[in-house]
């Protein structure tokens, strides 16, 4: 049952991601990406990573994609000259890169499965992990406290970068 749910959510995410990169209209792309975030959040819930699922929706769907939509609307991308996009010079190269990556990593994955590196059903049944906010908080503010502090510096840098870049005059 959980496996079926995960397959449904994963397929939703994958299909939405494909649609997002192939849509011509940036707003449609953004909305399909939101759909992908929901698919992934569902997948995280099935994987019992509840906190990650909630934060996925909160941060990605609730903040980042709204920012994208806001910028798209700000740029007024309905105008035809912005929607028109010439075909890439050599689309085959891009497709080849994606397929090549999928092939190489897929073969590596299959090899790992053959070597028995992943736990089988019996071993998985014994796995237990508390994905609650408390467990994540204890790890985040214990083991990874320095990384957390560094992240805040990163965000500060991003704020400065965004403000300086969007100033009317770049000089």
């Amino acid at each position: 049952m959980t496996t079926a749910l995960f397959v449904i959510f994963g397929a939703t995410a994958l299909a939405s991601a494909l649609l997002a990169v192939t849509r011509k209209n940036p707003v449609a792309s953004a909305m399909w990406l939101v759909m992908m975030f929901f698919g992934l959040a569902g997948g995280y819930v099935v994987l019992e990573a509840y906190f990650v699922a909630a934060v996925q929706v909160l941060v990605y769907a609730g903040a980042i994609m709204v920012l994208f939509l806001f910028v798209i609307m700000l740029l007024d991308l309905r105008s035809e000259h912005l929607m028109e996009e010439e075909a890439p010079r050599m689309p085959i190269l891009g497709v080849a890169a994606a397929v090549l990556f999928l092939a190489v990593s897929g073969i590596a994955l299959l090899n790992a499965v053959d070597d028995g590196m992943f736990p089988d059903a019996a071993a998985r049944a014994t796995l237990e992990l508390d994905g609650s906010a408390r467990a994540i908080g204890e790890s985040l503010f214990g083991t990874w406290l320095l990384a957390f502090e560094v992240t805040s510096v990163l965000l500060l840098g991003a704020i400065f970068g965004a403000v300086i870049l969007t100033k009317r005059r770049l000089t």
Binding site: L47, G106, R124
Partner: peptide
Amino acid sequence: GLAIPIEWVIGLGLALFSVGILGVA
């Protein structure tokens, strides 16, 4: 208990990553 094979999860990640490559390229 967790019933989902881990390799499926990793496979989903790989597929999504290649879709991302497709989009960027």
